[in-house]
Design a protein around this nucleic acid. Structure first.
Length: 878
RNA sequence: GGGCCGUUAGCUCAGCGGUAGAGCGCCCGCCUUACACGCGGGAUGCCGGGGGUUCGAAUCCCUCACGGCCCACCA
């Protein structure tokens, strides 16, 4: 019985938290139960963090917010599906491995068995080249190490993840689902491969998608260059990229520009290369900008690409995949020249240079040729970069796989609106992005550590691949590696031979896989039953900067595959910003390791900090808030201990016996239960809207109210054996209240609440874990809760007056009150009468010190309270 | 240039039509048998500026300023 209630003497979070984390794992506390029906299930589409070294406080922040929601759903009786994925796909990993081990993939090299990567020396300048297979092994080694580290942190933080539901985006399962997705889109005619100008990162030597591009401000110069007009005359164009002069295919001005109108139809001669290019009208030429006439090159920017495409112009690609200017031959197609010898001589100076070097050299040559007008004029321009790259992007014509999306923008907008966005205004970001789309989704990457395209190409008799007739595998054969596996109907010895086949060498964009996380969880299309139970998911938590990528692509894929939305709710978390207003993950604050903070404070304290921020709202990194969280947990520990001592005391009193909420008969207790009922009602409603932060705010306030006021008012009665029924009422209210508070706090502070729950309620309630206990609904308050909380509020107000008087006179809290004089309307006094016993006891009012006076009239006058302290801290002799 | 969010006490934030709030910090006290990792009390605000709607505006509308973010801008 009561003597079984035991608790530690002091709150030591590290002990409590490691103990429970281990126990939850042993018990499989957070396992998803595949046997329960869809209606009882809550599916979280967890973000797979990029495995690139270490997690930071931004992760702790957003993952905690999701966990709070998941835990509350679980307590509401839901069968929570809460998986964890690791995004170890693609460039971030390759880049990291390159740095860690000082190696680089050279697909031509043979595999070296038994080779293991070793950490790169500090001053290793050159990268060791290794085979594709060795490189992939190094990638896997690195990511597995990281994933273990990540998992340990998540467990320590108390995320209620079902660790049996793990996946990695390069893992076999994800490769299967990603390849199935590709084949489905191929069947539906939604993907196509084409040779087209594509955004190309010369540093990584891969194509990238529109969504991965960001603008960066760069300092540059306008160079004014004189072009001759064939047949006489000249004009000056102003350009920031003179190095593309050799790639010039036309010169354009606005159709209505009077300065250049007469030149349309004529040809201009490029300086240095003496190529005749047409002078044409083009709407996108802005007469206000530069000199109003500009050159079109293949390719300087999107406008060039569009113009080139529309006018079906020749392709003069001079920037190669490595970013260097490639060898070209003037005087032969597609590089015409009136003076080939001079052109080739000029170009010889540029060949092999990177754009920046070529720019300087070109300017030099132009100057020497007298084609440069005036001095360069400095300007700041927005230049497109791959978000992970450090070289400006180039448009390079290459063969890539694209998903056709430009024709379904309306449908995608409609799908986005079917999802409930939290906060709602984040939908705008999505809409704006979809409306601004101007390229199909380029999904192929010229990388190694990723999901290969499951296609082979037949080779013609001349040995050229036939890209129009790709060979695809059966679904059951997935995943395949077309560079290692044979296509159906072929044998390995036909690889690369005329009449044989060749495997696609590219891998998929990382988003091609992560856009399928709901399907990865549901095992689409391989397990229709599971898919029906887990798709669409209930909640997608994610950050706002990847709305245009992750959210967008996920909605797109769900639409293309099944004409569905991927989830019913999307919750957008804010950022953690450091005091200098920088995003934490990008500032020096990144150096703050979550592991250290967990050790210095506690998981509950960090969770408290994270849960105080509303969805979508950025939060300041502030260690003071950890302290507040820690204090709250300590208070829960102490107040619970005290409450349970009261319960034990009453239990050992045979005149009290057992109790239930129906035994709450004292007016003060009933008023308190009514206050709790309001709290329960609000908490339920706000969680419904995922507004956990609001709940935490007033839950905390209510809990301190409990500790500072109700507990103080009731504790003497709870202790005293004088009136058994009144004592029973007190402990009944106290026990119920504590059970409510613990459960309300459980999603936020899973450790301290579990610890306290285990002292007594795990047994008394028949719930081994608080996290399996039911979320307290307001109906739990029963009949007492249906009344008013007014009496409690009145008692609290009078107690405040007593405290204020004692503080003013610098007396201790227990200093006796000689006279407590209340003055008010008859009805009010009658009400106060009911709680006077508790008040006198809490305020230490001496026997006979209570006075009441009826005041006439004054309809809404507040209760008058006069407090007179005793002269000495000794009750006067009775 | 377009869009979104924000601007409330020294700091971090709640409040979003009816007399300005919390925590931290600061100041003054208190060993009261759950907690001194505690308890009680106190001071602190042209609620960014201007205009409007209303009996009444921190709260609704317009406008400006500042800060942040997303997108566009590459000749």
């Amino acid at each position: 019985m009561s003597d079984e209630t035991t608790f530690p003497a002091a709150y030591v979070p590290a002990e409590i938290e490691t103990k429970w984390a281990a126990r939850w794992e042993d018990e499989g506390r957070y396992r998803y139960d595949p046997k329960r029906p869809r209606a009882e299930t809550f599916v979280v589409d967890t973000p797979p963090p990029t495995v690139s070294g270490s997690l930071h406080m931004g992760h702790v922040f957003s993952y905690t917010q999701t966990d709070v929601i998941a835990r509350q759903q679980r307590m509401r009786g839901k069968n929570v599906f809460y998986p964890m994925g690791w995004d170890d796909n693609g460039l971030p990993t390759e880049r990291r491995v390159q740095k860690e081990f000082g190696i680089r993939c050279e697909p031509g090299l043979p595999y070296r068995a038994g080779w293991t990567p070793s950490p790169a020396g500090k001053d290793a300048k050159t990268l060791e080249e290794v085979s594709r297979k060795n490189f992939l092994e190094a990638c896997r080694l690195q990511t597995e190490k990281d994933e273990q580290k990540y998992e340990a942190l998540w467990r320590r933080l108390g995320l209620s993840i079902d660790w049996t539901q793990q996946y990695a985006t390069v893992g076999e399962h994800c490769r299967r689902v990603s390849q199935a997705s590709f084949l489905d889109l191929l069947k539906k005619g939604r993907v196509y491969s084409a040779v087209a100008p594509t955004l190309w990162d010369t540093g990584f030597r891969t194509a990238v998608a529109q969504a991965e591009v960001e603008d960066r401000e760069q300092n540059g110069f306008f160079h004014d260059i004189r072009f001759e007009v064939e047949g006489g005359g000249d004009f000056v164009i102003s350009t920031t990229r003179p190095e593309l002069l050799a790639a010039c295919i036309a010169v354009v001005a606005h159709p209505e520009d009077a300065r250049y109108k007469r030149l349309f139809g004529k040809s201009a001669l490029t300086p240095l290369f003496r190529a005749a290019v047409p002078i044409m009208p083009a709407e996108h030429a802005d007469p206000e900008k530069g000199t109003g006439i500009m050159m079109i090159c293949t390719f300087g920017d999107v406008a060039d690409v569009e113009f080139w495409r529309k006018e079906k112009m020749p392709l003069r690609q001079i920037v190669g995949r490595s970013g260097r200017l490639e060898a070209v031959e003037f005087g032969s197609d597609p590089f015409p020249s009136r003076e080939p010898a001079a052109a080739n001589a000029a170009y010889a100076n540029l060949k092999g240079l990177y754009p920046k070097q070529a720019r300087a050299k070109t300017v030099e040559l132009l100057s020497a040729a007298g084609a440069l007008v005036g001095a360069p004029k400095p300007t700041v321009q927005a230049v497109k970069f791959y978000e992970k790259g450090d070289q400006p992007l180039e448009f390079i014509s290459t063969r890539q796989w694209f998903v056709r999306i430009l024709d379904i923008k309306e449908e995608l907008l409609a799908q986005g609106r079917k999802v409930a966005w939290h906060p709602e205004y984040m939908l705008k970001r999505y809409e704006q992005w979809v409306e601004g789309l101007n390229q199909d989704w380029c999904v192929s990457r010229q990388r190694y550590f990723g999901v290969p395209f499951p296609v082979w190409y037949p080779l013609g008799e001349g040995g050229a691949p036939d890209y129009a007739r790709p060979i695809v595998p059966e679904l059951s054969a997935l995943p395949v590696d077309p560079q290692a596996d044979c296509p159906p109907g072929f044998s390995e010895d036909r690889r690369g031979r005329p009449g044989g086949f060749v495997g696609d060498t590219d891998v998929m964009d990382t988003w091609a896989t992560s856009s399928l996380t709901p399907q990865v969880s549901s095992h689409w299309p391989f397990d229709p039953d599971r898919h029906a139970k887990l798709f669409p998911a209930d909640l997608r938590p994610q950050a706002h900067e990847i709305i245009r990528t992750w959210a967008f692509y996920t909605i797109t894929k769900a639409w293309l595959h099944e004409k569905k939305i991927p989830w019913t709710n999307i919750a957008i978390s804010g950022w953690v910003v450091s005091p200098d207003r920088q995003k934490m993950s990008k500032s020096k604050g990144k150096a703050v390791a979550p592991e250290d903070l967990l050790a210095a404070y506690s998981a509950d304290a960090l969770r408290y900090w994270a849960a105080r921020a509303k969805l979508g709202q950025d939060t300041m990194y502030d260690e003071n808030v950890f302290k507040v969280g820690h204090r709250l947990a300590t208070k829960i520990f102490n107040a619970s201990k005290f409450t349970m001592l009261q319960l034990q005391g009453a239990e050992s009193d045979p005149k009290v016996g057992s109790w239930s909420l129906a035994d709450v008969r004292e007016p003060l207790d009933r008023a308190w239960v009514a206050r709790m009922r309001g709290l329960l009602r609000d908490a339920g409603g706000d969680f419904e809207r995922f507004d956990y932060a609001a709940v935490l705010l007033y839950l905390e306030t209510a809990f301190w109210d409990f500790c500072d006021n109700y507990l103080e008012l009731v504790k003497n009665r709870g202790y005293s054996a004088e009136r058994p029924e009144a004592r029973k009422s007190a402990v009944a209210a106290l026990e119920w209240t504590l059970k409510c508070f613990l459960r309300l706090f459980a999603p936020f502070l899973p450790y301290i609440t579990e610890e306290v729950w285990s002292w007594r309620f795990a047994r008394s309630e028949g719930r081994a874990s608080i996290h399996a206990a039911p979320w307290p609904a307001s109906e739990e308050a029963g009949a007492a809760g249906a009344e008013s909380d007014r009496l409690f509020l009145v008692a609290r107000a009078v107690l405040d007056k007593i405290r204020t008087e004692k503080a003013a006179q610098k007396r201790s809290v227990k200093w006796p009150v000689q006279v407590l004089d209340l003055e008010g309307r008859a009805g009010d006094l009658e009400a106060v009468e009911q709680v006077l016993g508790d008040l006198a006891s809490a305020g230490n009012v001496v026997a006979g010190g209570l006075r009441r006076r009826v005041r006439e009239g004054a309809e809404d006058a507040p209760l008058g309270v006069r407090v007179e302290l005793a002269a000495a801290n000794e009750p006067p002799a009775a």
